[in-house]
């Protein structure tokens, strides 16, 4: 089973913001997606899980499939979200729920697991992500890096087959970003297919099996990370990669 995005297009009025985007993520694979700000990366991830309706194309995962103009609470959209999790770049947490409650929310509310199953899941994911010491703390009491791990634990605890991570390590210092990236690597080796939107080029070079470059809503580069990063082919790809390299 793959996460298969087929010729997805999205317009805002006359503005085409995503144009014929196709991509495929296999189980256990890390597929990198990079691109300048406002190139459509976040919008694409929102479209894949039907948070945002799109105008043409489809998203297919196994038996679940969302078509153009599907709204967020359609049955097919809900089915898609059971298979594909997302961790957003900007995310707000209710300040009145503890880390344990935040991780438990998916299993208990969405999956309807029993109390003991929920407790086991929370302990398992908190253990894996190094959150045990923080379980009874509130979001205000923990650091940004820890919150990023909480967001990952929340998404992972409902067992998605695929996970979209939208710049989860942006705004984190390199050491903490590295830890979070390791967690994502661990998920991938469990068989979770990851679409990783990130600016951690070195991590992507090392670990991603493929790298896509999105520019103005179009996938302009697609291939092995080394090839995309070192020898981009398209004018937009060259422009973005060179600008990104100069920036560092």
């Amino acid at each position: 089973m793959t996460l298969d995005v087929q010729r997805l297009s999205k317009r805002f009025g006359n503005d085409v913001v995503l144009k014929d985007v196709s991509l495929m993520v296999a189980p256990g694979e890390i597929c990198g997606l990079i691109g300048a700000s406002a190139s459509g990366k976040t919008l694409l991830s929102r479209c894949i899980v039907a948070l945002e309706p799109f105008d043409s194309g489809r998203v297919v995962v196994g038996a679940a499939s969302i078509a153009a103009h599907a709204s967020r609470f359609d049955g097919t959209s809900q089915a898609m979200r059971r298979m594909v999790g997302v961790v957003f770049q900007t995310q707000r947490f209710p300040g009145y729920r503890t880390v344990a409650q935040l991780i438990a929310e998916g299993p208990s509310v969405v999956a309807g697991s029993s109390r003991s199953e929920v407790r086991d899941l929370v302990m398992y994911w908190a253990g894996r992500l190094g959150l045990i010491p923080h379980l009874h703390k509130f979001p205000l009491e923990i650091s940004g890096g820890t919150l990023a791990r909480v967001a990952l634990a929340r998404a992972a605890a409902v067992h998605p087959q695929f996970l979209i991570c939208d710049e989860v390590t942006a705004n984190l210092d390199p050491a903490v970003a590295g830890e979070v990236a390791e967690v994502i690597e661990g998920l991938a080796s469990d068989g979770v297919g990851c679409l990783l939107i990130s600016h951690q080029f070195e991590f992507l070079r090392r670990r991603a099996s493929r790298l896509l470059v999105l520019a103005n809503g179009v996938i302009v580069e697609s291939g092995p990370p080394a090839q995309v990063l070192d020898a981009p082919q398209s004018p937009d790809g060259i422009k973005f990669i060179n600008a990104a390299k100069r920036g560092r």
Binding site: F73, R81, R92, P94, G106, V109, A111
Partner: peptide, 27 residues
């Protein structure tokens, strides 16, 4: 109520009613 908080609840797989109960109402 921040849209991102609603979106992340929806993305987690909550139904419309669950989003109302778990996010909109307490917030």
């Amino acid at each position: 109520v921040p849209r991102s908080q609603v979106d992340s609840a929806v993305a987690l797989g909550m139904s419309r009613l669950q989003v109302v109960r778990r996010v909109l109402l307490p917030e």
